[in-house]
């Protein structure tokens, strides 16, 4: 079942001026419920514009967005409703924290939805749980948290709206390897527990390779690829032409394949690579 469907979506900035810029050009795709999609493309490829059209922050110049088979812009006055259905976490979301306590900040979205106090409370605690924020932090000022905790509190603020589609723009930017790993597995667990659709916008191919099952590649405003993660990263030549690098491990295995070594394509993680290589060695009796 499709969670989000996009038809001929285009966005033009500064139309009919010398600065006219086609940020997104006639993009169509359909994302199924329960998919974990990676969205990659280098800066200026139209990724940000695209995701902001998915929750109605930017009105498409042409084309349609359907969430749960409902046209987003059928009733422009009710566009706010869709922001709760398609949750968008911006890059460096900790810069949006503003309330006196972490609790109130996470409750901002649910409060805007007009939920009852008891329901809000339930959602806040639930969301804080998902991102691994301890209960005692909820009564602290968000400005007293550490960098990583702030990031997680901000993400919880979107999760608390219980969106059917969760979009995260570079959620791990600026975090160190530990913070990155922890946050990624939390998002992954959230996705599995809810079986919701998650779209992860990222520059880190390693991150995308680790958690997603599908990948969309944007290039110069076009949707260049949309396929299973392994299938996309197997096309490393095309990706590097778009200025994208596949994970180091995938590159190494692809290079070995080119030299005639009998390994499968689309190896995305070190563990998988270790397994494939030792198996091959065993098969050839070298191990």
């Amino acid at each position: 079942m499709s969670a989000i469907k996009v038809e001929n979506l285009s966005c033009v900035y500064g139309a009919k001026t010398p600065f006219e810029q086609h940020a997104v050009k006639k993009v169509s795709f359909e994302i199924n419920k329960g998919d974990f999609v990676g969205l990659i493309g280098h800066t200026g490829s139209g990724k940000s514009t695209l995701v902001q059209m998915l929750n109605g922050l930017i009105k498409p110049t042409t084309g349609k967005v359907y969430v749960d088979s409902v046209d987003l812009w059928a009733k422009p006055k009710e566009i706010r409703k869709f922001r709760f259905k398609v949750g968008l976490v911006f890059q460096y979301p900790e810069y949006q924290l503003f309330e006196e306590t972490v609790y109130k900040d996470i409750a901002f979205g649910p409060t805007n939805m007009g939920l009852s106090q008891s329901e809000i409370k339930e959602r806040v605690i639930h969301a804080a749980n998902f991102v691994g924020l301890k209960d005692e932090l909820l009564n602290k000022s968000p400005f007293d948290l550490s960098g990583g905790e702030k990031r997680r509190a901000a993400i919880a603020g979107v999760i608390a709206m219980d969106p059917q589609v969760l979009i995260l723009d570079e959620p791990t930017a600026g975090l160190d390897p530990v913070g990155r790993n922890v946050l990624l597995s939390q998002i992954s667990q959230y996705q599995k527990a809810k079986n919701n659709t998650v779209i992860l916008v990222s520059h880190s191919m390693e991150d995308v390779a680790r958690v997603t099952n599908k990948v969309m590649v944007m290039n110069k405003g076009n949707l260049a690829m949309f396929d299973d993660t392994a299938a996309v990263f197997a096309r490393s030549d095309e990706l590097s032409k778009m200025g994208l690098r596949v994970p180091q491990i995938t590159r190494v295995i692809e290079a070995l394949r080119e030299k005639g070594i009998d390994l499968p394509s689309g190896v995305l993680t070190v563990d998988k690579a270790v397994m494939e290589i030792t198996e091959l060695l065993k098969k050839e009796g070298k191990l």
Partner: peptide, 29 residues
Amino acid sequence: MSAQKSRGADMESGSLIQRIKALIPVLIP
């Protein structure tokens, strides 16, 4: 503003006082 709108902040409607209140989530950050 975009981030707060994504959390359902309503900045386009309401009375003057409501609109000023709606600015707090933007001004503090």
